[in-house]
């Protein structure tokens, strides 16, 4: 037991490193939020685009989502950072990581929204259209509110899973939380740094999970 405390909970060793840890933490928060803020709306936009049913465009969309759902995020981050410059697009490590993760999240959330759109009964479209609402009006006022509601739980899972991929940014030297804490671990030869990292990840994602539970309730409509 003593050993465990000495190896994992010796916070005195951290005293010199708190500013670094805090900076790493902020970077992780920033990357996570940006990934979700770009990835989820992009996924919704693609799902809506797919709904209009232009055949060639839909083929492209399906290619996009299948490709980005299949490729490992790590590879994608490496490609964004090391390969894009050859095409004249120079991205910083931070931007490359966020871009890669946001694209992956957009592909997954497109599929979730698409499934949600298909889960709304056809009669809802018919009811809206029969009163003279146009396609877009029916989509916005009748279909999407129901889609968002059924999509929140799976979307939350995905968003959290992929946001945790921000740790992969360490491969292109983003000074995010896990990168910082594992360096400290090497410096002080004690894994307490990782404990701190883990606690901070909890501090970041637990409120996020709670927030999405609240969202679920806010979007729920009373069932009898």
């Amino acid at each position: 037991m003593d050993q465990i405390v000495r190896y994992f909970f010796d916070f005195s060793l951290m005293s010199a490193y708190w500013p670094d840890i805090l900076r790493g933490f902020l970077i992780t928060i920033e990357m996570s939020i940006l990934t979700v803020l770009i990835g989820v709306p992009l996924g919704l936009a693609i799902a809506i685009l797919r709904l209009y049913g232009f055949k060639p465009l839909n083929a492209l969309i399906i290619l996009y989502i299948d490709f980005f759902r299949s490729i490992p995020q790590l590879v994608l981050i490496m490609l964004a950072y090391f390969a894009l410059p050859s095409f004249g697009l120079m991205l910083g490590p931070f931007t490359a990581t966020v871009l890669a993760l946001a694209i992956v999240l957009s592909a997954f959330s497109e599929e979730i929204f698409w499934a949600g759109i298909n889960a709304v009964a056809k009669g809802q479209w018919e009811a809206g259209r029969s009163t003279g609402l146009g396609f877009n009006q029916t989509l916005v006022h009748i279909i999407l509110p129901q889609v968002v509601r059924i999509s929140i739980p799976p979307l939350t899972n995905r968003a959290i899973g992929i946001s945790k991929g921000t740790t992969l940014g360490s491969v292109v030297a983003v000074p995010e939380l896990l990168n910082v804490t594992s360096s400290i671990q090497s410096n002080v030869a004690n894994p307490t740094a990782l404990t701190v990292g883990a606690l901070l990840f909890l501090a970041l994602f637990l409120p996020f999970v709670r927030f999405t539970r609240w969202l679920e309730r806010a979007y729920a409509h009373p069932r009898s």
Binding site: A121, G123, Q124, E126, A127, G128, R129, S130, T131, G132, L133, H141, I142, P145, Q146, R149, H221
Partner: peptide, 27 residues
Amino acid sequence: LRRRIGMVFQGINLYPHKTALGNVTLA
């Protein structure tokens, strides 16, 4: 055209996220 033709469905098809009032006011 559809504005001039009312329809009532076998499946009822009320909007579940809107109140009775909201169902009627939307259109």
